[in-house]
């Protein structure tokens, strides 16, 4: 996508401050995510990546600032407006958050059963296709507890994609995946973003995956409580004048600058 094109803003975060009691995690964070791009939220552990995502999807209310999804303010959306908003989102949680009392197929079918008019056999097939997409064909009738951590994570991704959401949030999708599956998954994300125009917001610290899939990234830092870099990950790696950013992208220890 050329920079001169006017791009449709899907997510707009304005002066967001995230705080729990008197502990401030993020301060005055602003950025925009455009339609159809794969947007990475990077940063070391504890830098507030997950907290940021949870504010965007409306799980937490911002201490200050506002978040808009497709022009609608998330915190202000109530009742039907909120449901309509949530239907546009798919969220994969860091630890999977699969329902332990349901098989994988039932986990993926659940949103389809609740939100669509599709006949039962259609729902089953859609769910099987999603599971195939993350390499879990043959495990449809297993319970989440019978799977390894990486497989649970893949199933969680399949569930997040069940309704083909307009915006897909992935919280550390590639951690816990073997390199081959992770690479396959990267390709899947790219295909979805390019063909269906899905916007993907991915929280990650997997550098290889970042360089493959992310069009743009922001990088958060724990001490700065906010964004220390924004842009194309390749350019940031080569050209950033911030040592914190260069260390991160080149996978170097931070000790020498500290």
């Amino acid at each position: 996508m050329g920079a001169d094109q006017v791009r449709e803003v899907v997510i707009k975060v304005e002066g967001l401050t995230a705080a729990f009691d008197d502990r401030t995690i993020l301060e005055n964070v602003s950025f925009e995510v455009y339609k159809g791009e794969v947007f990475g939220i990077l940063g070391g552990s504890g830098s507030g990546k997950t907290v940021l995502v949870r504010h965007i999807i409306g799980l937490y209310e911002p201490a200050a600032g506002r978040v808009f999804i497709e022009g609608q303010e998330v915190a202000a959306a109530q009742g039907d407006a909120r449901l309509a908003l949530l239907r546009r989102l798919g969220v994969m949680y860091q630890l999977g958050a699969l329902f332990g009392s349901m098989t994988l197929l039932e986990n993926v079918s659940l949103p389809l059963e609740e939100y669509t008019e599709l006949p039962a056999e259609a729902i089953e097939l859609v769910a099987r296709l999603k599971l195939k997409l993350v390499g879990l064909e043959g495990f449809e009738h297993l319970m989440p507890s019978e799977l390894s951590g990486g497989m649970q994570k893949r199933a969680a991704i399949a569930r997040a994609m069940a309704l083909d959401p307009a915006i897909l949030f992935l919280d550390e999708p590639s951690s816990g995946l073997d390199p081959v599956t992770a690479a396959d998954f990267d390709q899947t994300v790219l295909r979805l973003a390019q063909t269906l125009g899905i916007t993907v917001v991915v929280v990650t610290h997997d550098l290889a995956s970042t360089f493959t899939i992310c069009d743009r990234v922001i990088m958060l830092h724990k001490q700065k409580k906010g964004i220390i870099a924004e842009g194309d990950p390749h350019e940031l790696r080569e050209k950033s004048d911030n040592p914190l950013v260069r260390h991160f992208f080149n996978r170097e220890p931070e000790a020498e600058t500290a």
């Binding site: 197929l105 097939l125 099987r128 296709l129 195939k132 997409l133 064909e137 043959g138 449809e140 009738h141 295909r191 390019q194 063909t195 269906l196």
Partner: peptide, 19 residues
């Protein structure tokens, strides 16, 4: 683009119900 999404799957694989 949609054809590529379809090409990810081999329909014959989905003939039998999952084990």
């Amino acid at each position: 683009g949609f054809q590529r999404l379809l090409d990810q799957y081999d329909p014959a694989e989905f003939r039998a119900p999952p084990p």
